[in-house]
Design a protein around this nucleic acid. Structure first.
Lengths: 210, 210, 210, 210
DNA sequence: AATGAATGAGATTTCATTCAT
DNA sequence: TATGAATGAAATCTCATTCAT
């Protein structure tokens, strides 16, 4: 359990690794996943050589950043389960999505980067865990009578993913816009008379990592 | 009106231009906006030289593709106004968004590409026209009593943009997933008792080209 | 004699040819002998195709411009022989060099261009004629007692060539500077007591076209 | 003083830099300032990448070579001041010009290259220093009675520049030809009765970097 | 272990030349 | 015959990666 290779790093090496990851995440978002490795290194305050010692190539760096993003979503989802009701947990999850946005939009950049992240087994494990937590919340919410019965965990995951993407609005309106969209969606999700959604509920398995 | 420089191209040159644009649009989506120019040329069936004669550099090509995308959305919005009721027009617009998806997701690729498209005056004009059409629909729908009064044209534009993005689901489920999301959203948009959305209605002017 | 191929050109074709040569001369001086052929064509007011019909490749164009330059120098030298004394003829020749400058400095641009011009037989013929005229003037001037006897036609040719080059001074001072240098040189050339020049008089044959 | 960025280079990097400059100087003269960067790199025994690391583009390389040339002329001028008389110093300076020829004729190649060199502030500083040294020599020579009083430092600079250019004669005669021209000029420069030069003495300030 | 210099493959871009209209 | 569109070879420049210091 503590044999995790990262755990064995000396304190300064550890700091280097963290700085590199932070720099990479920021620059991927700002300049796309093709930023020169040298610029990432400069921003992290290390030489390229050091960067390559930690991450053998660009793909490894992309994978690491991707894992970090999914780990954050999982942590958020698990934290949400502490809410008193399943409905409140779902709302909190959808609501927090927007704060995860920055950390996640990397995934949107360049088909290649996304392909690399999708193919990473560690990320797939994280995604499965996220979907598990959501499944539990969905079932509980439907049993407590707060969530319409024609949606599944897959639907919720889709909504989380949608709300995580950068909103097509200027920076300073992002929060307001996201809030309005979220509320529109909640209005529609609440159990009440109305037409059923088309098709059957989506299951987690319906969803590859898009 | 026919003084448009494009209109003066020789027939074969015109054909080449169109093929280049089609190839670029497809490859930007498949491989990101950094695909080698040479591959675009090959796919268009022309030499690189021809590509560069038409589009002096990559940015010019990105701009042209961006313009095409926005022009398609505008055409779709204008066509939607032919529906018998404003509500049906809005539904059609939101519904067709998904068919525009392929043609538009280019915008999502790489911050630089998006910056180039945003800065293009022709695209800005197109965007303004689109928002005008939507404004008309929103007002009409509210007057006919079908649309809640606490949403504005800006809200609708955001929803169009959201629904235009690639859905985080496998290819074969895209249509179904989009349909479900759309219906969830419609349920929330229909006029009926419920809590008001936070903040004031967004106006078109609230939205820069995101 | 009138079988010269150029003489057979139709009037408009002739005009085209002249315009192209004028444009080429100007642009070689302004932008070096590597200016894009297309720009030369544009400046001449014709299409590239037309340019290539007249001059099969860049070298042919450079050769033609070079010939024109040497022909001008020859004409100037021949005109100088009309002066009453040989000394005055020499002074006039050296003095007019500066007005030939623009037409000649092409030769200085890029070793390759110069190599092409040097290798052209027509240009070599022109150069020989120029040297013949100068030889006559030198002999006559020495016989009339105005020119020191330790200089040869080759020396004079070198001086012509030096004075023809662009003066290392700002544009508006070119004339004054050339005039001062010319007078310094004339002071030294005039027959009078003083140390002999080193070596023997240069003959025309000593000089390849540099 | 040692904070000069070049001074901080690692020994091998320093060596590479020098080799690149030497190769560039040689090839600019042999093949013009448009020689492929790759050939310069090959001649310097390094990869293109190394060349570009040191000199971000061709202009930077041209600038550096230009600076080197002017620095050499300055060094030569300063060394000349050690001669016993000012007249001898001037003769030495003019005489050594020919040995500087190779190192300097780059400036003649292509209007663009020359424009780049002229615009470089470091080169402008060097040129000013050169003119300062010449000014001192001219004044001293005139006071010691060896130099005609109607020439200024600008005139001398022009002569240095003229003598520095490649002589229009075959390689093996270059030295002789230059020597003859130099002596013709000296004969004219020596103080003695004769017509005054036209115009007023040129001052250094009259000369922009040509 | 960290640094940053060197490499060279590959992408972008330009232009001489050819050829369809 | 004149035009200018198309081609593709060649040049410029960039950057991932390796390796000497």
């Amino acid at each position: 359990m503590t044999a995790d290779p990262e755990a064995r790093l000396r304190a300064d090496a550890r700091r280097n690794r963290d700085q590199i990851l932070a720099a990479a995440k920021a620059m991927f978002v700002e300049a796309g996943p093709d930023v020169p490795m040298e610029e990432i290194a400069r921003r992290a305050g290390v030489g390229v050589g050091t960067l390559y010692r930690r991450f053998p190539d660009r793909d490894a760096l992309i994978r690491a950043v991707g894992q970090g993003n999914f780990a954050e979503v999982l942590a958020e989802a698990e934290a949400a389960t502490e809410e008193p009701t399943a409905w409140e947990a779902l709302v909190r999850l959808l609501s927090r999505s927007r704060s995860l946005r920055l950390s996640v939009q990397l995934a949107l950049l360049s088909p290649q980067a996304w392909a690399i992240i999708k193919a990473d087994p560690e990320t797939q494990r994280l995604r499965d865990s996220i979907l598990d937590v959501i499944s539990g919340l969905v079932t509980a919410a439907q049993e407590e009578g707060s969530l319409r019965r024609d949606v599944g965990a897959g639907d919720i995951a889709v909504l989380v993913a949608l709300l995580i993407k950068p909103m097509p609005a200027p920076e300073h309106l992002t929060d307001l816009v996201t809030d309005r969209v979220l509320n529109l969606i909640l209005d529609g999700l609440r159990l009440r008379p109305g037409p059923p959604l088309p098709g059957a509920p989506l299951s987690p398995d319906d969803l590859l990592l898009s």
